[in-house]
Design a protein around this nucleic acid. Structure first.
Lengths: 231, 231
DNA sequence: AATTTAATATTGTTAGACAATTAGTCAATT
DNA sequence: AATTGACTAATTGTCTAACAATATTAAATT
């Protein structure tokens, strides 16, 4: 009877605010702390067997990630989801991943290109096997590796910030099984452009690739339902 | 004798960790907390007339901005400056401002374009008047407005994070008086491309514009000195 | 001089307290 | 009945004081 979605317990103290923040962040991304929920310090600190001091620091960390809003004298509220934020997140993915592809096309990092090729081959196999769960996990890694290929730590850091916020929408919208085959073909073209040193072409292809993701989300059932209720 | 660069006092309590963070952040950007300096909690809290609790939260905020590194059991250390970070910051500016220009070229926000044109005209006048101080202030606003023209709050937020870290290098490297006239001409071309709806052209021009800034920094005396000592 | 040992300082956390602010309750008034 | 208003409870924000764990520094020893 008790539903399977009740909040998880905080694993175990080796008590750092960082660990608390990771846990809180995870609960929010997974939707167990739903949008709009207030996190009350005393209750949370008791549940985690910590005092309010490190918990408050943890809340600061999570707020800096954009998952919480700290209102004066009102405490921490889980940031709401919105179609506009999702649009902006996709925009940022275009800016970051597009720039990364162009940058990599200029730098020609051989090892990174090889890794990307291998990943894309594995993605193709996962489609044949219809193993969509692992497909989406590896697809995320492919995009990570694309950003990493630009060899810019700050760009990676920025991308990670976007990713954390983006994952909340993935959790709500689930994945779209029709998309993968097309994605692999697009990855192939992106890689070809990068290896050919065509920075502008690679960027355009990456932006188009992400635009395809946007469309797929918008056309999926979950996506339409979410977008409708939000408006 | 006593140099003019001794740390300033914390203005006045209306004590929020946010105020403390703003102050600390300002001291770091201005170089009064120099790179590598350790911020000791007890001493700082006494100087600001606050307890360690809100101070520690302030340190978390500043650390999230990338200006401090919190090492376990060793406390807060002011993030060092490096040529590599500066390069990465310029890269991010290219990615963000370039994307913003392309995005604005597609959206055609009339008000934003008008504001940009006005600013650029004012910049031209400030050159004639050889008022470089105000020139650099307004030039920064021009770039802010360019990013804002993309109408994406997250992009602005991301840009602001880059700006905070970038300002530390501006404080060290000072400004380059030879650059401005060329910049105004480049702004004009960027605006023309945006208003013509030429997204790719606008982005290319913005990237080239920022690359010019990079070169100017590298060729300035202060820049060479900084880069030499760093390597 | 180099290494080990002891003393000191600093961080990380806890507990309990309190003022300031907000949220919730319930009666009085319109 | 609904709205207002005062009262109460709950929550945040801050402080002090303390302590264990870890780092840093100084002294002592080899």
């Amino acid at each position: 009877m008790s539903s399977a979605s009740g909040p998880t317990d905080f694993p175990r103290p080796d008590l750092l605010p960082e660990r608390l923040a990771e846990w809180i962040s995870g609960e929010i991304v997974a939707g167990r702390f739903p949008p709009g929920e207030r996190l009350v310090e005393h209750a949370l600190s008791k549940r985690c067997n910590v005092s309010r001091v490190p918990l408050r620091e943890a809340l600061r960390i999570v707020a800096a990630q954009g998952l919480l809003i700290l209102e004066p004298h009102r405490g921490a509220v889980v940031t709401p989801l919105s179609e506009s934020e999702l649009r902006e997140l996709f925009d940022l993915r275009m800016a970051i991943e597009g720039f990364a592809a162009a940058s990599a096309a200029r730098q020609q990092p051989a090892a990174a290109f090889a890794a990307l090729r291998r990943m894309n081959a594995d993605l193709d196999e996962l489609i044949q096997a219809e193993d969509y769960e692992r497909y989406y996990a590896l697809a995320a890694e492919f995009h990570d590796a694309l950003v990493a290929a630009a060899q810019n730590g700050l760009l990676v850091e920025t991308y990670n910030r976007v990713k954390i916020r983006f994952r909340r929408y993935q959790a709500v919208l689930a994945n779209i099984p029709h998309l993968p085959p097309r994605s692999v073909a697009e990855h192939t073209r992106i890689l070809a452009a990068m290896e050919a040193g065509d920075a502008d072409g690679a960027r355009a292809l990456v932006e188009a690739h992400i635009r395809d993701l946007v469309d797929a989300y918008g056309q999926s059932d979950a996506g339409r339902r979410f977008f409708d209720q939000a408006s």
